[in-house]
Design a protein around this nucleic acid. Structure first.
Lengths: 230, 230
DNA sequence: CCAAAAGTGTTCGAACTACACCCATGT
DNA sequence: ACATGGGTGTAGTTCGAACACTTTTGG
């Protein structure tokens, strides 16, 4: 690839599309908005925007996410570039998709409303514009893979969470059911969670103990050559 | 993301960089070329080119690979988009990296010479321009992951290969050593290889049996819910 | 005959799976 | 008192890891 003298080359609009994933305790959701105007009025779309000259692509992704959610410093990772010629109905646009794992509670409902945005179950996706459905599927595949070897699932949970919540989350990510006892056994054996005395009574009369993820412990184990695996 | 009316948005050069991986029986190699002119003369670089208006990004990657290798219909997969503002010393360029798994024997040495290209061991990378080293590392990480769950390693081998070759290849991909007996046992159990009577005598006096990958068998097993894993 | 690489089975332990009952509490 | 979800232990099986010697043959 030559340096400088690119004048004769084509230039392209480069967009960002964000797959914002959240967990509401029951379902794994993605944040979508319903288009208010033609073309494609009524169809659903990912949150997006264009890359600008004064920012890297990663920075553009962070900005787009912040713009539409008001949230900052969120776990984001690139899914990939989508470059079919006619993927956008307007002019040609090459889009780079990112997924974000967020704690839903940090979202301002007013901001969502302002963007006509809603949380939608990933298991029941509506019709989406362009290749956005593919982007979501690709993002979920990456999440499935990464969640198995890195403790990123916790990024979808509030600071304090219960075992049933955590298990439910992993069941949704892996699209399977897990054995309660085996799941707990594994987590306990990892020794990266701290059990609190306090209980969450919102979903049962008995209440479930809260746990918190202990990142220091996890980092220490990492240094000792420990590998997360779930 | 609005449709049409993008005039006020910035446009970018979009490049392709190809991580072309090959296996010579002994080492895992990447195809690099040495820059003949300033700037960055003498440094090494991946094979690259720019995306054009009349092709998708995937197509551009295939074209770039064909241009510099003369080879077509090769296994390619996207690594990701690299979008730091100053990653290119010339103007701003967003690059999309792809890796290709090729059978080295199909390469025309004259064509390599024409491009000042050489096969270089991935374990001993020279100094590379821009973020090309990162691209190679990312590509190898993807290969490592995918090779464990999909039979893509065979794409780096000639039609007929021997067990020691195959094992060597996987050892290079995984950057580890494997037990001969366990490796063979696993492969045999998969029942996706066919053993030929003929032997390769190039690396030992006794000679090693050739095997071929049987894709039909593999596809049949896939349909039966079989999962490759190595 | 010897060097050099190919080929071959068994044992052990770790990790995963399957599985059923009691507990705590709000209504 | 009962319905609802939370919490706990064991046994069986499977899979991966470790391990050493014989075979072939060209030089």
């Amino acid at each position: 690839m030559p340096v400088a003298f690119y004048q004769e080359e084509e230039r392209f609009y480069v967009a960002i599309d964000c797959i914002i994933l959240g967990f509401n305790g029951k379902d794994l959701d993605v944040l979508l908005y319903k288009r208010k105007f033609e073309p494609m009025k009524g169809l659903w779309s990912l949150m997006g925007g264009f890359v600008r000259a004064n920012e890297s692509v990663d920075e553009a992704a962070a900005r787009v996410l912040a713009d539409c959610s008001g949230i900052d410093h969120v776990y984001m990772e690139q899914v990939g570039a989508y470059g079919e010629i006619h993927r956008d109905l307007g002019e040609r646009v090459i889009s780079i998709a990112y997924y974000a794992l967020v704690n839903m509670n940090n979202f301002n409902p007013d901001m969502l409303e302002a963007h006509n945005a809603q949380w939608v179950k990933v298991s029941e996706l509506p019709e989406l514009i362009f290749d956005h459905e593919q982007m979501i599927k690709d993002a979920l595949a990456i999440l499935r893979r990464k969640a198995a070897v890195q403790p990123i699932g916790f990024k979808l949970l509030p600071e304090r969470f219960t075992m049933p919540q955590l298990q439910r989350l992993y069941e949704l990510i892996y699209r399977t059911t897990l054995d309660k006892r085996n799941f707990r056994k594994k987590l306990c054996a990892m020794d990266i969670l701290e059990k609190l005395d306090e209980k969450d009574k919102s979903s049962s009369k008995r209440g479930a103990h809260y746990y918190v993820f202990n990142r220091e412990k996890y980092n220490k184990l990492l240094q000792q050559g420990y590998y997360f695996s779930l």
